[in-house]
Computed example of a mutant assay.
Amino acid sequence: MKGDSPEIAAEALKTGRLVMLPTETVYGLAADASNPQAVARIFEAKGRPRFNPLIAHVANAVDAETVAVFDASARALAEAFWPGPLTIVAPVRDRDQVCDLARAGLDSVAVRVPGHLKARAVIAAFGGAVVAPSANRSGRPSPTTFDDALEETGQAVGAAVDGGPCAVGVESTVVSVLDGQVALLRPGSVTREELEAVVGPLAEAAGQGHRSPGRLALHYAPDAPVRIEAEAANDGEILLGFGPGVGEARWSLSASGDLREAAANLFRLLREADRTQPKGIAVSPIPRTGLGEAINDRLKRAAGFVG
């Protein structure tokens, strides 16, 4: 399928239809954030639990503050990392712009300005906030290519924008900025160290996990069972290797041990390995520093651990 233009996608959003939206993180299944019926179509297409809130994507930081109430820390984070793969959870300002269903009934809202030019072009042409969870069926690995996104939920969309392979490959970092404290709710490519360089030490996120998307225990999971921290493949398994000489080159997350390369390859290789119908998918140990925190978080959820 040839991708549609941002203008065609924006028209589809205005009429309550869903749109396949490229971002720098993963492909999203987008809908008008203010339209409960359109948002419900996302849940239907994904089979997504209704208690899991969605991220409102906006065209710029000014628009973000029409949706959410930002304090000085939120503005500092937005200035440092937007457009880009950071989601800020803050008190909701306008409940009509992001409906209750999209917020899972919470008094907070998750918002970000995506780094992908085509994503921002669609949102700007639409003229409002767009919710766009990953375009996979719920619990499955997130799609990082146009074809994979179409395979997952393409039958549910009224338009689809091809933005090429996703540069980042894992979902955005999510932080809450509530009651004067900044807490990390979901690790991503904006690392803990980068966040703390802007706002100082992060607070504990105890009791706030429900405010972030992607926090189910079993998430990002292929059909084959996933075994993490594996030194070698068992009989019938495929090993996703990390580092020089680990496993087959075809299945290497990064032969050079580069965490950004591993993040970009993670969901694609989980999906490709799963298509071969192995007995299981084993994954080499991944360092837990920097971006490795996000990779390990996704792998724990793919393996069925809360993490």
Rank of each mutant, 00 (worst) to 15 (best):
A149F: 00
T153I: 06
L270Y: 05
L218P: 02
R186W: 03
I238V: 11
Q181P: 03
R211D: 00
A221E: 06
E196Y: 05
A230G: 03
R271Q: 02
A263E: 05
H219N: 14
G188R: 14
A249S: 14
G245C: 10
A205Q: 10
L216P: 00
L184R: 14
R260M: 04
V182W: 06
S256I: 07
L239P: 06
D223I: 09
G169C: 08
G200S: 09
V246R: 15
S254R: 14
L239W: 02
A224L: 06
S176T: 15
L259D: 05
G247F: 01
L266A: 01
E193M: 06
D223W: 01
A160W: 10
G188W: 12
R250N: 02
H210N: 11
F267N: 06
A255Q: 14
R186A: 00
E193C: 01
L253R: 13
G214M: 07
L240Y: 03
S256L: 11
G241H: 10
F242Y: 15
L270Q: 09
A206G: 03
Q155S: 12
G241S: 13
L184V: 09
E237F: 00
V190H: 02
G164F: 09
E194Y: 03
G247M: 09
A230H: 04
R250P: 00
E231V: 06
P165W: 04
S256F: 02
L150A: 00
A205P: 09
D235R: 14
A230V: 03
G180L: 10
L150N: 07
L266D: 01
G257Q: 11
I238W: 02
P213F: 07
W251D: 07
E229G: 00
E152P: 04
R271I: 04
D258Q: 11
R227M: 01
Q181R: 15
A159W: 15
G257N: 13
S254G: 06
D235K: 14
L266R: 10
E272F: 02
E152D: 13
E248T: 09
L216M: 15
T191K: 08
P213S: 14
S252I: 08
G164N: 13
E196I: 12
A249T: 15
V174H: 04
E261R: 15
L150Q: 13
V177K: 14
F242S: 12
E231L: 07
R215K: 11
N265A: 05
G236H: 08
